[in-house]
Design a binder for these strands. Structure first.
Lengths: 158, 158
DNA sequence: CTGTCAAACGAATAGATTTCGTTCGTATGA
DNA sequence: TCATACGAACGAAATCTATTCGTTTGACAG
């Protein structure tokens, strides 16, 4: 399950742009298309390269407001917490959920149309569950996701 | 800049799996490949469909620990804050940064190898900048990202 | 030196994308 | 009501790509 610098270069390219053709990737990493294809197949088979997802401009389709919810949960049984986690991740407006240690238990990122919509999500989903003891809400002014490998080029590799 | 239910279906499919072929998408939404191709080109041209990114299993390549940093900033000038934002997003281990209202100013998700690595990131990047007044750290036990449209199927559309 | 193994190569085939001329259906205005 | 204009979908042709597979290369161990 080790990765050499060629694999790494392929992953870096695909994280930046999953719509690159095999031919383009091959040229960029200095391999024949067939060899590059084998590499990518192997990365997928080994579970290193998992999937690809299109990024949609949510603001352009009416989801103009983003928020982060800091949720505290009561000391309930595991399966109750797990169930709430699953149901939270299934809320369409929820973009991501993290179960964390510390002051809060859940960090939830949401995309909504407006304040009214935000209020509705919080009251209908979070404040309605017994497991939730408190929700703090922050408006997101600016968000940036990094679609790159968590290693700089200069870091040694294989 | 409006979206009908066919566009919506295309976006939903591509968010779930950006590696679907045009032919497959066409079949799924009930269009000829050429028509579907026109739709996708239009969505890209209108800025609704932005890009696609491969998802890499970071745990499989040694980044076994995820954390969220809650950062408070001092009341400094805008350009200082902006500069810090940009430099934070450029840290390889940083997966996402949100500038938010409320108790904290920055919510930063990071992927690191281990606790040692986490400590290094915090002390080398965050605690070294004058603009940072405080950092609280939470370990991420579990994270789920939703790669779906923020609307349920039942919601009315065009 | 020699045998083995994994990776890369290149050519051939199968399959997909992309373009374009045409058709269909609808909405608009005479 | 009829004619026209417009946008969307279609189907076929051409181009380009993915994918497979037999062969070659290079590294390493015996």
């Amino acid at each position: 399950m080790d990765i050499d610098r060629t694999d790494f270069a392929i992953l870096r390219l695909l994280m930046k742009n999953a719509w690159l053709s095999n031919k383009e990737i091959a040229a960029a990493v200095g391999l024949a298309p067939s060899s590059c294809h084998e590499r990518i197949k192997s990365l997928r088979a080994r579970g290193i390269l998992k999937s690809a997802h299109a990024e949609v401009n949510l603001e352009a389709i009416g989801f103009a407001l983003a928020a982060v919810l800091f949720v505290q949960l009561g000391k309930l049984e595991d399966h109750v917490v797990d169930e709430f986690l699953r149901s939270t991740a299934a809320v369409p407006e929820v973009r991501g959920v993290s179960l964390v240690s510390g002051r809060f238990d859940l960090i939830v990122h949401v995309a909504v149309r407006d304040m009214e919509h935000l209020k509705e999500i919080i009251s209908k989903h979070f404040n309605r569950h017994a497991v939730v003891t408190r929700v703090e809400t922050s408006v997101v002014f600016n968000h940036e996701t990094q679609h790159a490998m968590p290693l700089s080029d200069s870091d040694a590799f294989a």
